[in-house]
C-alpha cells in the first residue's frame, strides 16, 4: 500500500509538514517494499488559491491510498475523499514517526476537515 506524508524535506527523517495543500513535498512510502519516493509540491506552495484541491489531485495521480498530515481543509478533504484517499490528520514529528504510528494501527481515520478553508 502506498501512503503519502506531507514533508518539509527529502527523506524519512524530514519534519512532517503540518500543512497539506501548501506542503513543500510529499513522501510517497510503500508499506510493502519499505521504499519511498519524493513528490515535489512547489507549484502549490505558491498557488494563489485552490492549493489543497490541486495537491489532492497530485496525490490522486501518484496512486497514494492514504494521506498522513497535520491539517486538512474542507475543499482538500472533499477532493481527497472523491479520489478514494483515506485521510489521517493531527500528525507531527518526523515522516518516520508518522509512518510508525500508521503501521502500528493507532491512528484513526479523519471523518472531515479539521481546519476551516483558508480562502473564504
Amino acid at each position: 500500500m502506498k501512503i503519502a506524508i506531507t514533508a518539509a524535506g527529502d527523506d524519512l527523517h524530514a519534519p512532517l509538514d503540518p500543512r497539506f495543500g501548501r506542503a513543500a513535498r510529499f513522501i510517497l512510502y510503500d508499506t510493502e517494499s519499505k521504499e519511498y519516493a519524493v513528490v515535489d509540491n512547489e507549484q502549490n506552495l505558491n498557488a494563489p488559491q485552490g492549493a489543497g484541491v490541486q495537491s489532492a489531485e497530485i496525490l490522486s495521480r501518484s496512486g497514494a491510498e492514504c494521506l498522513l498530515t497535520g491539517h486538512c481543509g474542507p475543499k482538500a478533504f472533499r477532493t481527497l475523499t472523491a479520489a478514494g484517499i483515506c485521510v489521517y490528520t493531527g500528525l507531527s514529528g518526523t515522516v518516520a514517526d508518522a509512518i510508525r504510528r500508521f503501521e502500528s494501527g493507532e491512528l484513526g481515520e479523519a471523518s472531515g476537515a479539521d481546519v476551516e478553508g483558508h480562502w473564504q
Binding site: A47, Q49, G50, A51, V53, Q54, A56, E57, S60, K75, R78, T79, A82, A83, G84, G117, W119, Q120
Partner: peptide, 23 residues
Amino acid sequence: CGRICQFNAIVSLKTQPLVFPEL
C-alpha cells in the same frame, strides 16, 4: 474541464468532476 481551470475551481478525478464555486 479540470485541465483548463487555472483556479482549481473544478477538478475531475476518477469520479464526477467536483466544483468549488467559491474558487
